[in-house]
Write a protein that binds this DNA or RNA. Structure first.
Lengths: 358, 358
DNA sequence: CTGAAAGCGCTTACAG
DNA sequence: CTGAAAGCGCTTACAG
């Protein structure tokens, strides 16, 4: 049963034709008579012929492999995204080589170099915050935020945020706490800006965890108990991760979600549905994003390298910026604004509280 | 600035030597005079020479690429593991091609085939539960559980469980609930068996979520409130994911962790430290596991294909089974067993119920 | 419609 | 210690 790995020549010999004809028949490119082509395909299948990628790569100058650079590999979105990218690439006959860059900017550049050395035909980069993608001498599609220059495709974070804001507003929430990590992130600004817009003229406070922790230390309290005491009835977190932190902090303090306060996240991570209460969140359509990104690089690869924006030594960054809609996932962590709070508010005349009278 | 991609021949020409000598000098294999070798390396560096992987692969029959098959890519451990594998492979000059197999057994086989077609020199497989790794015509290292036949390397799940059990026992827990998903998983049996052993003669109950959900539906209550009422003072979950579900279910029911009941997990996922209270858990040393797995495939690749266990068409499954110790991560979700329970226990003499009277 | 031939860039025996 | 030559498996102009 153990036969040698069949090459093109073997199948050519066994049919008494030339390797050129076999190659043409198999690729469907050359002009080969339908009958011969069919016989060739049959024997190829029968012999279990698998073309040598090395031979093909050497001849064509294309490896059939794309690189995937996830700047922040510990990003919990990584599994889904990697899966989507791999699927999309596989459909087009491409393989995905991964490169990790520890979240370090220098390492990101190194990772890109390593991929180039491996001969990738193009790459998909999900860059680190505020990072420039440079030095790639091949087409590069960037997945980040629509607000990022050079971005190729991204979820419409702003509209997603708006959707969440509208949802909270429709539940009667008039005083909302926004929970972000860093003001330096385009994605975060987009998301939270959208939430604000969706909330209309509700009272909005924002807490930036990065700043908070700079003072109070890693893993410090988010001050949620006080916020709720202040009249906050909903908390919109920048991510499910942050939402989870908020949820458990609230629960530990004996504050009921969603009865006392509603909580929302972003991303719809695996565990977002297993926690109690399940997390209302805004999901990215990673499959569509992956498809668009892959299509963009493949197109750039196919096209003569000139139509794109070329930089420096010849790297091609594809910028087209479609925004992929996000999807609202309703679970139990959001509910109507606490009415008792409104009543108490309405008695108050204090300026900061006044706008919450219902 | 835009020079052509330099080939071996170019650097040979520019020095007036043969390509053979350049190749030998650069690879360090051939016998080349130190001075010449040095000059060659210098010009190569200066010219920015990067060897063509295609040319090399075609000639040597080796691609320099390893496949990574994660059966369950949505596994939250994936990012860390992929990162560790990629790093370890990169150190040895290998690239990592990923293949996703949707958790489907047939898809896993397909994924393996696709990698073979891409010419990988070997692969690392983290198989799906109860799955056989077959059809790979190259060395394969399997990361699963020490109890899995064909396993190459794994965390010592049993000892890890034992560590957790000992920890809980030392805190005075005499009645513990084990939370598992599936009885069919080697990893889960190892882990929970270890916990039991570490717990000594404490009373132990086990709940299998898979069975529970088969009856009560996806996302049903785990019945934790009743368990605590029964006298359970600690809950050992099979994973952080399950522990999180338990934690939030408890908190939602107004049961304080760890005051009323302690909770432990396995894996130390990203969010395990951000929840309140932080989750006490048992961490796998993915870096060591990755190193061992990579070393094993590379060794098998280097060695003439005969010393291994060869199956069917010639796939080489490497079985050596080192167990990598796990590390206990202490956080706030575990504490002393509720003392009120102890007092009542000591009064009781009833075998099954006595120790749980509250 | 089919075939002979060249060549992608490298490495490896083999001579010298 | 160094070089000439062959060849890995494929594809692509170019003839016929």
């Amino acid at each position: 049963m153990s036969r040698q790995k069949p090459k093109l020549a073997r199948i050519a010999d066994s049919l008494g034709v030339s390797t050129a004809t076999v190659s043409n028949a198999l690729s469907g490119k050359g002009r080969v008579s339908p009958e011969l082509a069919e016989r060739i395909r049959a024997t190829a299948a029968e012999l279990g012929y698998v073309p040598s990628v090395a031979g093909r790569a050497l001849r064509t100058g294309r490896s059939g492999v794309l690189g995937l650079v996830l700047a922040d590999i510990s990003n919990p979105l990584f599994p889904k995204l990697a899966q989507a990218i791999e699927n999309s690439a596989a459909k087009a006959g491409y393989g995905i080589l991964i490169a990790d860059s520890h979240g370090d900017v220098a390492a990101q550049t190194q990772a890109i170099e390593r991929l180039i050395e491996r001969g990738v035909d193009g790459m998909i980069v999900v860059p680190r915050r505020g990072t420039w993608v440079t030095g790639a001498s091949c087409p590069v599609a960037v997945i980040d935020s629509p607000s990022t220059p050079g971005n190729t495709v991204a979820a419409d974070h702003w509209s997603g945020g708006q959707g969440l804001g509208l949802h909270l507003a429709s539940l009667g929430h008039k005083h909302v706490l926004l929970l972000g990590n860093s003001t330096a992130s385009n994605v975060q600004n987009d998301r939270l800006g959208g939430v604000r817009a969706g909330l209309g003229n509700a009272k909005v406070e924002a807490v930036w965890i990065e700043k908070l922790e700079a003072k109070a230390g890693q893993g410090c309290s988010l001050g949620l108990e006080a916020a709720v005491a202040r009249g906050v009835t909903a908390i919109a977190a920048i991510s499910d991760l942050v939402a989870l932190r908020a949820l458990t902090e609230l629960q530990r303090a004996g504050i009921a979600v969603p009865e006392d306060v509603s909580v929302t996240g972003f991303d719809d991570l695996i565990w977002s549905s297993v926690v109690t209460p399940g997390l209302t969140t805004m999901r990215m359509d990673v499959v569509t994003i992956a498809d668009i990104a892959i299509a963009a690089v493949l197109e750039a690869i196919a096209r003569p390298p000139s139509a794109e924006t070329r930089r420096g030594d010849g790297d091609t960054v594809i910028a087209s910026q479609p925004k992929v809609p996000m999807e609202l996932v309703l679970r139990q962590s959001t509910g109507p604004a606490k009415t008792s709070v409104f009543r108490k508010d309405s008695k108050s005349t204090n300026l900061t509280v006044g706008e919450r009278i219902q």
